[in-house]
Design a protein around this nucleic acid. Structure first.
Length: 581
DNA sequence: GCCGTTTTCGGCCCGACTGTTTTCAGTCG
């Protein structure tokens, strides 16, 4: 039984208990559903290894829910769940996915009209039967039909790489609206989560009506969920829901905090407030009627006895405890990188020359760039063999002589063969400044085989960096089955650097793996994997992933000047190569 | 049903908007 299946049962139990108006229990089950979904390792595996005690270690899981999870793992079903389901035997997952349809309404729809699934619901709505139910009306019926339409064309979550530019554009537009003093992006986009479910924007204005009117009237808006004085919510034509809140200036910090989340982080802060005899909401921190903070986020955290917690850390993964202990990491800044260590050019599958890539990187403020074209194992890209690499090295030497205050490093994205050997000979690798190694084929090997393959590759004394270690492409390709802990240990042992590929579809290593690497003391490189000059601007996505993984400047090797960077690669002898120039 | 530097009982985050009702329940974030 997979984590997703266990989570689905937990979530259904929560909905079914909600139907009967049961207090508190639904939240307990819901919380567990979220926790299990977020788990990397299969719960069944955890149970197999550590028994029911290990299952109870999962946050939010107590004795009762642990027993239910174990029953599910061992028998594949859960009598408690089935008993509850008998009362309202409907397709809960899809009905509750409809906007505005919650447990209570689903129950009424089943009891009054025997509606069991989305098809039944659509038929009843089209026949005008729903408006006749108590507490339903014509508008509810229309809303349900619209919700069914959205569900059918639902695109789900949007990758950050698409959502962030879109929300930034809307923010810029809002800044031009009359009466607007401040605009700030919030929500999971501000936390730089790799995919986002909706967009959240905060506005300070003395003319809320004008802001809301402008917002719901934007050309991309296909539906207005709600429009009020302080909060409006719309759906855009690409499926993304966006909320705007207009707040008073003195509440800006509290609202930014509230609106940024995550939810559990907010709940924890409110608990802290209560412990101190205070109340926290999106308008501020209050002692009785008296506001004691709210203008800035810093001031909100301060009255709760905490230092400022950067948005990327607000995922309820220990950041509050770390803040209380004064142990928050000093996260790498968005302008801390001096070089980009993975770029492709027209020598293989890139669309710009070495010279163009270097010029753009220099324009963006970088001090060095590694040219890492593909190697021969990746035939479809025209990957380099040893001779072509030597040619390219000579070309780079020539270009470097013309450059001032900028260095082009000689590198390659060397293909890892199925058996873990590399497709370029050691003699040639030794001549390169930076050797990245990467998996590009045989994605479906077993965990054991794949791990053995990658370990063999990074044990090569010339392999400096493991590029995009898990090979995932967000929403398109699953990661390869890799024992990431073993890879991190091997990287530590061999001095191999792990990459955070900043290309927004990849973000590989992902945040939680970054955190494991950082905890193990493994160094990281943040690179764009640029295939044209535009892609060189992607570094900030990688920095965001690194920040979400609690990485500091010291953890990231390309924050160093070029000589220091080269000296810290495997062997360190490569500094001699660079200094001969 | 979970959880604990106010611990093994008694709490459990907080508010906006909507639709259908005359004061509020349901849903959402």
């Amino acid at each position: 039984m997979t984590n997703a299946e266990i989570a689905r049962v937990m979530r259904e139990i929560a909905i079914l208990l909600d139907m009967d108006g049961v207090q508190f229990k639904p939240r307990a089950y819901e919380k567990v559903a979220y926790a299990i979904e977020a788990f990397d390792e299969p719960i069944a595996e955890i149970y197999r290894r550590g028994g029911i005690k290990a299952v109870e270690e999962i946050p939010g899981v107590g004795k009762s829910i642990a027993e239910k999870i174990v029953t599910l793992i061992e028998t594949g079903h859960l009598p408690y769940h089935e008993e509850l389901r008998q009362k309202v035997p409907v397709d809960l997952a899809s009905l509750s996915a409809i906007e505005g349809l919650g447990p209570k309404m689903i129950k009424v729809l089943y009891e009054q009209l025997r509606i069991k699934n989305v098809d039944d619901l659509e038929r009843a709505a089209l026949a005008g039967k729903i408006r006749e139910l108590p507490h339903f009306g014509e508008k509810s019926e229309q809303k349900i039909l619209k919700g069914i339409g959205f569900l059918k064309q639902s695109s789900g979550r949007l990758p950050l790489g698409l959502a962030l530019p879109l929300i930034t554009m809307i923010e810029e537009r809002l800044r031009t609206v009359a009466g607007v003093k401040r605009v700030a992006g919030a929500g999971s986009i501000r936390r730089r989560k790799e995919t986002v479910g909706d967009g959240d924007i905060l506005v300070v204005s003395n003319q809320p009506d004008v802001v809301m009117g402008f917002f719901v009237g934007m050309p991309e808006v296909i539906h207005v969920h709600g429009q009020g004085q302080t909060k409006s919510s719309v759906k855009l034509d690409n499926g993304l829901d966006v909320d705007v809140r207009v707040v008073p200036e003195e509440s800006f910090g509290a609202a930014l905090n509230y609106f940024t989340g995550c939810k559990d982080h907010n709940v924890a802060l409110r608990r802290l407030a209560i412990e101190r005899g205070l109340k926290l909401n999106e308008y501020g921190v209050f002692r009785g009627e008296q506001a004691v903070a709210g203008r800035t986020e810093e001031e909100v955290y301060a009255v709760l006895g905490l230092p400022y917690i950067p948005p990327e850390l607000r995922e309820m993964t220990g950041e509050i405890e770390a803040a209380q202990a004064g142990k928050l990491p000093d996260l790498i800044d968005y302008d801390a990188l001096r070089g980009d260590l993975q770029t492709q050019t027209t020598w293989t599958d890139g669309s710009n020359s070495i010279e163009e890539m270097a010029a753009e990187a220099q324009r963006l403020g970088l001090e060095y760039i590694a040219i890492t074209d593909h190697t021969k194992g990746l035939a479809m890209t025209g990957g380099s063999d040893e001779a072509k690499l030597r040619q390219q090295m000579a070309a780079i030497d020539k270009l470097n002589k013309k450059l001032d205050g900028f260095t082009i490093l000689k590198g390659a994205e060397v293909n890892i063969n199925k058996d873990g050997t590399l497709d370029i000979d050691d003699k040639t690798l030794a001549q390169l400044d930076v050797v990245g190694v990467a998996v590009h084929s045989h994605f479906n090997l077993s965990r054991a085989e794949q791990t053995r393959r990658v370990l063999r590759a990074i044990e090569n004394p010339h392999a400096d960096i493991l590029f995009h270690p898990t090979c995932r492409v967000i929403q398109k390709r699953e990661p390869i089955d890799l024992d990431i802990d073993a890879v991190i240990q091997a990287a530590k042992r061999t001095g191999t650097i792990l990459e955070v590929d900043a290309y927004p579809e990849r973000l590989d290593l992902k945040d939680e793996h970054v955190r494991k690497a950082v905890e193990a003391g493994v160094k990281l490189a943040i690179d764009t994997d640029a295939h044209n000059v535009k892609h060189l601007q992607f570094l900030h996505f990688g920095i965001a992933a690194a920040r979400r993984g609690w990485a500091t400047k010291a953890d990231v090797i390309n924050t160093k000047p070029v000589k220091g960077f080269l000296a810290s690669l495997k062997g360190g002898g490569k500094i001699a190569v660079a200094s001969r120039r």
